[in-house]
């Protein structure tokens, strides 16, 4: 019997990038998925969990601490309900954070993967473009983009992706280049696999664990960048709440005793990053017990 690659694939568990190994006995992963699901549900169904308007001010109830009647997380200086702002803010932040991070990672992996297999000139072009973009300040690029496209939520996502794919691409490129020389990759070629099969089954899956770490970091980065851009009037309207906005506004309160205005949105961002990190780590498969 001769083996052909299609048949060899048949009854096995899916290999390569499709190998999402969601084993039932992994409490950390189950918790992380549950956390993301809860955050997503809260964001989507925000009006069901609060009757208050996140932007309405109430001068009779300013600067209330958490636990006050009617305001479970308290209010800010203008009397806006923090619970409502967190719920509606989750919509913007999760949308921007997760989409921008996903696009960043996909874009970076494509660019890095292409650079690793491409002829030398294209590899050089991609690597040098990444270097140049890394050297330019984020805001300059975004201002240029905004001047062309006009401010919107979509612009924020695109701007973040365009300015953060470089680390992912350079990591993927370096991982693939070092993995190419590995003995087991040579063994895969010796089995008669084509370049694409080797790339898909052996090279990319091996490069995933470091990318997974970067992906989680990118989510947090995107959530905070969104608030920076919105503050400059390049993203969502500044009065529309997002976790990033809440953090930016609350900076001034850090030393005035109203610590919770910082702590609550910061905790939300951190929890999201950790959950994404765990999920991304699971998607990228078991590590080799190495550095990541």
């Amino acid at each position: 019997m001769r083996s052909d690659p299609l048949r060899a694939k048949g009854p096995r568990r899916p290999g390569g990038l499709l190998a999402v190994r969601l084993r039932p006995r992994r409490p950390a992963l189950v918790t992380a998925v549950a956390v993301l699901a809860v955050l997503g549900t809260l964001a989507v169904l925000a009006p069901l969990f609060t009757s208050l308007d996140p932007v309405a001010t109430d001068t009779s109830a300013t600067s209330l601490p958490p636990g006050s009647a009617g305001h479970p997380l308290g209010t800010d200086l203008l009397g806006r309900d923090l619970w409502a702002r967190m719920l509606y803010g989750a919509r913007t932040s999760l949308l921007v954070g997760l989409t921008a991070a996903a696009i960043t990672v996909v874009l970076g992996m494509l660019a890095g993967g292409l650079a690793a297999v491409a002829p030398r000139w294209l590899d050089g072009l991609i690597a040098r473009t990444a270097d140049v973009l890394l050297a330019l300040p984020l805001l300059v690029i975004v201002l240029a983009l905004a001047a062309v496209a006009g401010p919107s939520l979509g612009l924020v996502v695109v701007a973040i992706a365009v300015t953060s794919w470089m680390p992912v691409a350079l990591i993927v490129r370096a991982e693939l280049r070092s993995r190419r020389e590995r003995r087991h990759v040579r063994a895969a070629y010796a089995l008669g696999l084509s370049r694409w099969q080797v790339m898909w089954r052996h090279l990319l899956p091996g490069a995933l664990p470091p990318v997974a770490s970067v992906a989680a970091f990118e989510v947090g980065h995107a959530i905070l960048t969104e608030s920076t851009l919105s503050f400059l009037g390049l993203g969502v309207p500044p009065n529309r709440p997002s976790w990033g906005n809440l953090l930016t506004e609350a900076q001034a309160h850090l030393l005035t005793g109203e610590w919770y205005t910082v702590a609550i949105p910061a905790a939300a961002v951190v929890v999201t990053i950790i959950a994404v990190n765990v999920v991304a780590g699971a998607v990228s498969g078991p590590s080799e017990g190495g550095t990541w």
Binding site: R182, R183, H184, R186, A187, A188, P205, G206, E288
Partner: peptide, 8 residues
């Protein structure tokens, strides 16, 4: 041969 197997 151990190095000729994908460690994952």
């Amino acid at each position: 041969p151990a190095a000729s197997f994908d460690p994952r």
